[in-house]
């Protein structure tokens, strides 16, 4: 046990910050059509949540499900996998979340109507907009070039944050089903970024905290922040 406590997170990360960031530039170039599709899906999802229709919600969840599946294969397995052995586990996690999203979207389940408009749901809208539009730009503040930015739909972190935001717009049972993995990923992402000394390591865990608080507020009638 004493041996294990002597390890730091960086001891398990076999790549440097430069390499990790460089991966996104290569990834975005290699899969540039997906890069554009992810952005379009993100912008479309903003429109869908504003319309507040059940059909739109199914389409949105299906789109998110496909994004998670894409990231599992293209990013974790194809791009990160050759550099980090744990990427296979990450891919499994993302595939599982994809399955959950697609199941909710496609199976003939009784999909409850949209939740009542409330402060947290509007904050959820704002969080979704931030995940799609602003989160990628945070990379610029960390001296990353535009081709290497992490974008919604193709990069794991903004996609997880956006999915957390969508939880505030869903009924409680669905939110409970769909937000644990995105929240867990945000935690993993922050640990990973901290391990490679990224100045933005705090971003995913802050978004996770915000997303969980908003979900709790929305689904528990304002126990917090009343």
């Amino acid at each position: 046990m004493g041996d294990w406590l002597s390890y730091s997170l960086a001891d398990f990360l076999p790549l440097s910050r430069e390499t990790y960031q460089g991966l996104f530039a290569l990834y975005n170039v290699r899969f540039s059509p997906a890069f554009a599709a992810g952005l379009m899906l993100g912008v479309a999802s903003l429109g869908v949540v504003l319309r507040r229709q059940a059909t739109g919600a199914r389409i949105l969840l299906a789109g998110f499900g496909l994004s998670w599946l894409w990231i599992a294969w293209a990013f974790h397995l194809q791009t990160l996998g050759p550099l980090v052995w744990a990427a296979e586990l990450f891919a499994l996690l993302f595939a599982l979340q994809s399955g959950l999203l697609l199941a909710v979207a496609l199976l003939p389940l009784q999909l409850p109507g949209p939740v009542r408009p409330s402060s947290p749901s509007w904050l959820g809208h704002a969080m979704l907009a931030m995940a799609v539009l602003l989160y990628p730009l945070a990379g610029l503040a960390a001296n990353r070039n535009f081709p290497g930015l992490e974008l919604f739909g193709t990069a794991p972190d903004p996609t997880a944050v956006a999915t957390l935001a969508v939880g505030t717009l869903l009924p409680k049972r669905l939110a409970l089903l769909l937000i644990p993995i995105p929240a867990f990923w945000c935690l993993v992402a922050s640990l990973l970024l901290h391990g490679i000394a990224s100045p933005l390591w705090w971003l995913p865990i802050t978004a996770m905290t915000l997303g969980l608080v908003l979900n709790w507020w929305q689904h528990h009638g304002g126990l917090f922040l009343r």
């Binding site: 990360l13 076999p14 440097s16 430069e18 390499t19 460089g22 991966l23 290569l26 050759p82 550099l83």
Partner: peptide, 13 residues
């Protein structure tokens, strides 16, 4: 080669 040579297919690296 720990970390330093784990650069994948990045041509510049």
């Amino acid at each position: 080669t720990w970390i330093t040579f784990n650069v994948g297919t990045n041509a510049a690296a």
